[in-house]
Design a protein around this nucleic acid. Sequence first.
DNA 1: GGCATATTTTGACACGCATCGTACTAAGTG
DNA 2: CACTTAGTACGATGCGTGTCAAAATATGCC
Lengths: 110, 110
Amino acid sequence: MARVTEVTDEPDVEDFDFVKVLSAVADPVRLSILRQLAEALEAISCGAIDLPVKASTATHHFTALRQAGVLHQYYIGTSRMNVLRTEDLEKAYPGFLPSVIAGSAGINRD
Amino acid sequence: MARVTEVTDEPDVEDFDFVKVLSAVADPVRLSILRQLAEALEAISCGAIDLPVKASTATHHFTALRQAGVLHQYYIGTSRMNVLRTEDLEKAYPGFLPSVIAGSAGINRD
DNA sequence: GGCATATTTTGACACGCATCGTACTAAGTG
DNA sequence: CACTTAGTACGATGCGTGTCAAAATATGCC
């Protein structure tokens, strides 16, 4: 029975830095990650998110989102799972994440 | 009597590019511009916006915001005036600009 | 431990970005 | 045109960022 192992470099909501959040989402690959997570309504592993870049590059993208506070990650077995920190972001920046996800809907995924 | 002279490299609202908009606002100096314009509720000239960088650098920041569609600029005499394209942004990305301006309120201006 | 899957780290590279200082241009007035 | 104010273009610089490939690590199971 695999246990849940948390990843530990995520900021507390009180420590969110808005410029960092904005910079983290201001990238087409990362917006694609946000959209896939928002559409799934559940955690998705890094490997299960469809991205137009190699795994090593994806890692950097996930890292930026996580360290900005946008993602929460944890291990299930050998898979690293991702969920959006929707409630924290809404608490810190009301309306921001929904408008970003909606805005990104017009972007072609490639 | 000074006439109004438009600046002409601003995108039409149908041509807005969300990544470009996000990238344009994801900078502390530019967020300060947005906040000053939002608080003023009227056009402010480039020179009248208080920024912690030199005029030549400020020019680049204004250019990024304008070309992303965030600002509308026009000359009054020798002064270049700026207003936020609030309605266009709300049309293209509902809720985005207000959440960004509110989110930037927690950022120290320096 | 060996093995497997999943992901990250490391190194290298190309490019873009934010900055400043200086010369130049834009928009006026007389 | 000369002059003024306001702002921009240009050049240079130092980082940071996004990318890939290969090696290394993280998390399991047996």
